[in-house]
Design a protein around this nucleic acid. Structure first.
Lengths: 183, 183
DNA sequence: CGGTATCGATACTAATCGTAGCGAAACCGC
DNA sequence: GCGGTTTCGCTACGATTAGTATCGATACCG
């Protein structure tokens, strides 16, 4: 049926990309807590109310921002080893981008005690990778979730403790360890 | 020299244990953000001002609470394998305790953009384990920090995503993987 | 009993989240 | 061009929270 019947009224201005960029920039500069919606809106050059018309809460905005930043996982490998390496390097690159780790930590914090937000987090951010990896790596769902916990958890903990991304030699060690584990 | 010369004036009432317990209880029930200092104080049966006389900020209070909860790492193993297993199980038990994971996530969030708090976190919480493990496992400092990232990061990510502690079979898999990695 | 430092209680400032209401603007079909 | 509909920017607002200031009461010491 009508695939794109434009609804009546003034269309939404296409500023989502601007808002996401402004969100990461602000979170990077000030941290999650002090990255107020007011400041994010100002950085994006729009009004705060416009943000709340599109995302129901600050946590949902940041989660959407993370989903947008991570994007699809490019798995082109011919072997499981190649795919594991590609996935880990993908995660390491993304988490090293300014503001991503801080946004992650903030969303985790908000998600505790907010089941709705945790649902969004698990469904929109983790599930796509779980599906792709389950198919691509040929492992059980439990095994894939275990893999995701290790990759993302380890990289985030390093960022949280030191404020710096994991050095390349440690990323290499992480890849080798997981290649052996998933052999 | 005088080991315990009591300073003049009214001594501090010994309520630290009560406050720590109330902190974890409240964070467990309401999450880090809504666990206000007012509520924690009420749960501990003391005044909010008493808390601020002892800890400079909510983040510092929760960090001290985590330090108190984790406590010293009991390493009695005769082999590196035994010590690795003991350390992982120790972390898994602690992080599974109510409120601990939520407190961790909250402190990480606050620590970004608050270098003082990150310093406390790194120095008071991570350093003792780094020292003990470096000595006990006979590994380089870099290797031990890598080990800590994997253990704590993985366990926290599972708690943050699902709200439930990691199941025992996955903890066993984590142990085996790390034993192989650190062989 | 005097000196000193803590305790409880109250009040306060400064931020912040999220909502409500308003007139102006953008786009559509006619 | 014109009415209908929806989003936009803007301002204002209520509720909640971190952290500070203050004051009388209290506990311990010599």
């Amino acid at each position: 049926m009508a695939p794109t019947t434009r609804p009546p009224g003034r269309p939404r201005s296409s500023v989502d990309a601007e808002v996401f960029a402004a969100t990461l920039r602000t979170v990077h500069q000030l941290g999650y807590t002090r990255a107020t919606v007011d400041r994010i809106a100002a950085a994006a050059g729009i009004a705060k109310t416009t943000i709340y018309r599109r995302w129901p809460s600050k946590g949902a905005l940041v989660t959407a921002c993370l989903v947008d930043t991570f994007g699809p996982l490019p798995l082109v490998g011919h072997t499981r080893e190649e795919d594991v390496a590609a996935a880990v390097r993908f995660g390491a690159r993304r988490i090293a981008e300014p503001g991503v780790a801080a946004a992650f930590a903030g969303v985790f914090t908000d998600a505790i005690g907010d089941p709705g937000l945790r649902e969004i987090l698990s469904t929109q951010l983790q599930d796509p990778y779980r599906q792709v990896l389950t198919e691509s790596l040929g492992l059980s769902e439990q095994r894939v979730l275990f893999f995701i916990d290790i990759v993302i958890g380890t990289l985030l903990h390093r960022m949280g403790m030191t404020g710096e991304p994991m050095v390349e030699s440690d990323v290499d060690a992480l890849i080798q360890m997981l290649q052996r584990e998933l052999r």
